[in-house]
Design a protein around this nucleic acid. Structure first.
Length: 466
RNA sequence: GGCCCGUUCGUCUAUCGGUUAGGACGCCAGGUUUUCAACCUGGAAAGACGAGUUCGAUUCUCGUACGGGCUGCCA
């Protein structure tokens, strides 16, 4: 516990925050926060063509929804371009890097031919050992001199020791011909400068780690702890990507999943702590560790997300739920609730939260508390109402006038009323529910009566009896 | 093509050589209930394949198959 942990999430702003990125962010957040370390956010926007401020905003919003707060300012990788270039030039000066004058056309032609001959497409620049005197006066890129023999071992906390033979490594480009840094350089410099101690990222970067290590070594910097986590696949097992049905984090918010449920689900995807399935943030923070991360890719399962979301809704306190529902409404572009509706919702929350999996689900069951008379029954409710004669409802209503408005007394009254009509309360419940809520799926009839109060209950029953 | 990684119920996973291979979601069947929802109980359901190491392999090694990733003056 000598050095404090510093992790980072480094998305490129070329689209929304998709679910795989969200999980990577969560793992980094969990690891740092669970150990009193720092969690940094860096936007990898060195690709000016594809980076957009909208994408950055979407990523930030997604993280905010998930409650993944970062330390310090959001860092723009592009802002560090001068420093990245400086490192490249330092390496150049130390002859650990060189100017390569090969044109993109030349390289492309080489690759095409290598491919057609079935040979390695690894490009070997002829300029690696060229004399400075022979340099033409034309644009060049700066490439690093990668080791060409021996091996590089990536000591990965998830993948184990991964050995790459150095002959597989190419002299990657550090600085483009326009002088701008390339990602491979920028990540290393930034991670080093930011003091990142643990790099937790998708395993699509596993091979890159070996190449990045050559930069660390050339600069004489300490290599961070690597943890390459397996990617998340779609329901069909294919890679989850923006063009392959992947949804942004915000879309899950708009679908009404509880953020805590999403965190729990995502944490459980690819990571485990024994048989624990449902857990709080505090527990996740306490338990999360790199050795609990699995090595095989996982598929995204909406059903389980739904289940976990429901469990977290049931476990949340009412005020927090109210706030999250309001945020959900905004994100789903639904009209917001009035103060009166909010008040009723909160009164009803105790019997709504344990039966709802998502917020739209909860709101649907809360209809009885949100609508005002006259109530328009939906199809199923209308059908339920049709099964009972209006006479019964109008006979029941006056009896509610003097009963004490408590659950026990209402139960006693309704049961004996049913008995008097030679039926069971169960037969009455459907129509009653329909009259009170205009819906077929609602909380208990008694809960609704208690929440609505005597006057409103009687009025609704009278309305329904026509 | 080359290199790297992976493979336990439909899905997420536990197991760190010896288990009736456990849990969760989903599914099916019952139950309870205010014919919904929620809840409870039970059930079906897995070690890709082939060798090897070992007294003993899901667990270790190798091969095959399948899946994934990387192979850019993208990140």
């Amino acid at each position: 516990m000598s050095n404090p942990v510093v992790t980072r999430f480094a998305p490129s702003p070329t689209g929304f925050l998709h679910i795989g990125g969200a999980r990577t962010a969560l793992f980094n957040w969990l690891y740092a926060r669970g150990r009193g370390g720092k969690f940094l956010l860096r936007i990898e926007d060195t690709d000016r063509e594809r980076s957009t401020p909208e994408a950055t905003a979407a990523i930030l919003q997604g993280m905010e929804w998930l409650g993944l707060d970062h330390d310090g300012d959001v860092i723009s990788q592009f802002d560090g371009a001068a420093r990245h270039a400086q490192v490249a030039h330092q390496l150049l000066g130390e002859r650990k890097a060189y100017k390569c004058f090969a044109t993109q056309d030349e390289i492309a032609a080489f690759r095409d031919q290598a491919k057609s001959e079935g040979k390695s497409t690894l490009y070997r620049s002829p300029w690696r050992d060229a004399e400075t005197a022979s340099h033409p006066d034309s644009p060049y890129v700066i490439r690093i001199k990668a080791p060409q023999s021996g091996v590089t071992i990536i000591n990965d906390q998830v993948q184990g020791d991964v050995t790459i033979r150095n002959e597989q490594l190419d002299d990657m480009i550090l600085l483009r011909s326009d002088g701008t840094p390339v990602y491979m350089l920028a990540v290393v410099v930034d991670d080093h400068d930011m003091g990142v101690t643990h790099v937790i990222r998708g395993d699509d970067h596993l091979n890159n780690a070996a190449r990045q290590m050559t930069i660390y070594q050339a600069m004489g910097w300490d290599v961070p702890v690597w943890a390459h986590i397996p990617l998340i696949h779609g329901p069909d097992g294919k890679k989850l990507s923006k063009r392959h049905g992947a949804l942004g984090a915000q879309e899950y918010q708009a679908m009404g999943y509880a953020a805590a449920g999403m965190r729990n689900y995502l944490a459980r995807l690819g990571w485990s702590h024994g048989d624990d399935e449902f857990f709080s943030d505090a527990q996740a923070l306490d338990w999360f560790d790199l050795d609990g991360i699995g090595k095989s890719p996982a598929r995204f399962d909406t059903k389980k997300l739904e289940n976990l979301s429901g469990q977290h809704i049931a476990a949340s306190d009412d005020a927090a739920l109210r706030h999250e529902i309001q945020a959900y409404l905004v994100s789903a572009q639904q009209p917001s609730l009035t103060d009166a509706q909010l008040e009723n919702l909160e009164k009803a929350m105790y019997c709504l939260k344990e039966r709802s999996r998502t917020f739209p689900d909860l709101l649907e069951k809360a209809q009885f508390a949100l609508v005002s008379r006259p109530i328009q029954p939906d199809q199923k409710a209308a059908k339920a109402l049709a099964t009972v004669s209006d006479g019964i409802l109008s006979e029941l209503t006056p009896q509610l006038q003097n009963v004490s408005w408590s659950r026990d007394d209402l139960e006693t009254l309704l049961n004996s009323f049913a008995e008097a009509h030679d039926t069971k309360f169960g037969k009455l419940a459907g129509p009653l529910r329909a009259a009170l809520a205009g819906r077929a799926v609602t909380p208990s009839v008694f809960d609704m009566m208690l929440i609505l109060g005597r006057d409103e209950t009687m009025a609704r029953l009278t309305d329904a009896a026509g």
